[in-house]
Design a protein around this nucleic acid. Structure first.
Lengths: 201, 201, 201, 201
DNA sequence: GGCTAATCGAGACGGTACGTCTGGTCTTTGC
DNA sequence: GCAAAGACCAGACGTACCGTCTCGATTAGCC
């Protein structure tokens, strides 16, 4: 009993429409916010029928996720690993400061918040988001931290997955709840305290 | 000539209706999730006119916030400070383990996620949420950490506001993005690493 | 089992409020039309609680009927019989021309139309309207026509109730459906043809 | 820059929905009366979205007018002229008796009263109603009366438009205000008196 | 001249329907 | 032979009024 509906033929898909939809989604998210973003508005802005969106994406969150991934790919351009100068503290500060800047940049803020909000409430989208965007980022930390452990600069008994969360968790917390301003100084403090906690015994 | 609309008279407010609304909001959030939660359904479940909700709350998120605050007040019952046995590590583990349990409990999970999701996208609600729910909790950490600093158990140069975020940020991160299971062991690890970072020099 | 609800004590009724309500009803009917007329607006305009209206009238139509009666009483001022100069045709033309003028006057038009519209759909109000406003007017015709019959100026075999409707029916028809302009010339024609039909045989 | 809102494409209109809406409107008007008739109830009964009604009609009165026109078209079936047996009086009695029967029939009574009531208060609808329903009927009288004038059976100086109103005006008056029962005998009397008034001089 | 009871202005309440908006599906049409 | 355009069913939105109710704060009228 698997009549799930004939899936569309991906070969015939219009690349022009796909791009227009993703671009429209990003623009409208920036202009009016995610809550007020509607599929109809995206279709109208992209000059596309609504069905063309429903055919290829299950929800407006999925559209935005794809749009965000595309945005990230444009920007990533080779940042496929964390810097490794040998000085872990300096490297982490560099990275976390860049993260702070990104979280503070309006270009990323609106879609990021939208996706984060959806992810909290929607486990499916959360899984996709994690897999497509977050996990690759986090793996970079794991790699760098493991290198540091091997170099004797960090306690090898500490799980890098946990260490990494001590670094990004506090930043995410401030960004999300706006309890305090998100600054380079804050990033530095987080790195310093965490690294003291990771000192080899 | 600035009064746009006479505000309702709070003295004549029906306590019965207020309670019924908050209760219905919590129930329905648990049953169908926040996205599918509608003002009409709350009104119907509470046996109340829609206008009675619109009269006193600006949005369904605000209703849920009040409901959550009420829920918290029932549960708090004197937990108005963190334990202080003299052993900071043990005390923090106790508290963070309790937090883990709470975040894993279905009773709190649905409304918490709803409010967190809304807060990310909606700064006004976020401010209210922070003031009413979060900040009082965080202040308890500040108090306990300062006591530890004065007792010479923690580095007095570290801002307690930052230290606290190293504790709760990672938990929030995991809860939010479901990257890994949220366990007592994880809470313990976070406490241990963070406290090593706070050791008096 | 006749506990129908204690009726209000008419002695203690506030004359000031009654007048204000009737006046407000007429004003608002003229300003926004009967459809958009609301009890709340009447109460607000009259500076009166809604209950004061509901206590004394069963519906907004009833309020307007009272208002219209009051309006008519001011204007009637002794027109309690039709003219009788001995010339039936001249007398009827005088009266029907006056009726035409009244139906064309904005002051009476709005409330008249409102009451007529309600009367068509609402038999109870219709009965009240007929009894209070219409029937007394029609009786004047009956009296005058009977006098003409006795004076040998009209066929005594014709029921005056029918004759009268041949006079006012066509005017009402034009007023109601706006098929043609309602003029003195039209009134004259109606009188002339009808009276020819009433000539004694 | 005058186009405020793209009008819907009439070619793509669903005939099935249109019919269902008109039928539901008639049924509900008969069941609960026009005042209690709601757009929501029509949509529900017709199995149709509310928007499908709002898309094609400006008001519930307009829906009912269309429904009434459709009803009339079904019933008309070739009655596109008045009978002409050569005996004007007999012919008019036949027609007016039929009109009396129609006005007394429950099937036509409820929607007729609704439309008449709306027409009194709403000039736009009145014009539509007159054009679509009333005027064609009245023209039949004009034609028949002119034939009688040419045959020397009626005074050629009397405007047929006025004569016709002497016939239908009184019936309308009684129907509307329920002052007396509306019977065949009444119709006969009206015809007799009016025709006496139209005797060629 | 105080007491009592009803009416008063005010407006919150449980409801119903409004007319609009959007979600997703289905149908038509034009390229 | 798609895909745009958009009509369709469905149902929530936030608003406006309905008619009922509960509040003090005036009034009456009876003792």
């Amino acid at each position: 009993m698997a009549t799930t509906k004939t899936p569309p033929d991906a070969n015939r898909r219009s690349e022009r429409s796909r791009r227009a939809i993703l671009e429209a989604a990003l623009e409208l998210t920036g202009e009016t916010g995610y809550q007020r973003l509607t599929i109809e508005a995206i279709a109208a802005r992209a000059g596309v029928g609504k069905q063309t969106i429903y055919r290829w994406w299950p929800s407006k969150a999925a559209v935005l996720l794809d749009a965000f991934v595309a945005l990230g790919e444009d920007a990533a351009e080779g940042h496929h690993e964390l810097p490794d100068t040998g000085d872990l503290e300096a490297d982490l500060k560099t990275v976390l400061r860049a993260t702070v800047d990104e979280l503070n940049s309006p270009r990323y803020d609106a879609p990021s918040r939208a996706l984060a909000a959806e992810s909290i409430a929607n486990p499916d989208l959360c899984a996709q988001f994690t897999r497509a965007v977050l996990e690759p980022q986090l793996q970079l930390y794991v790699t760098r931290l493991r290198a540091a452990q091997e170099a004797g600069q960090a306690d090898p008994d500490v799980d890098p997955r946990i260490a990494l969360e001590l670094l990004v968790g506090p930043l995410a917390h401030r960004w999300m709840l706006r309890t305090q301003p998100l600054t380079h100084a804050y990033a530095d403090s987080v790195v310093e305290i965490t690294l003291r906690g990771l000192t080899p015994r």
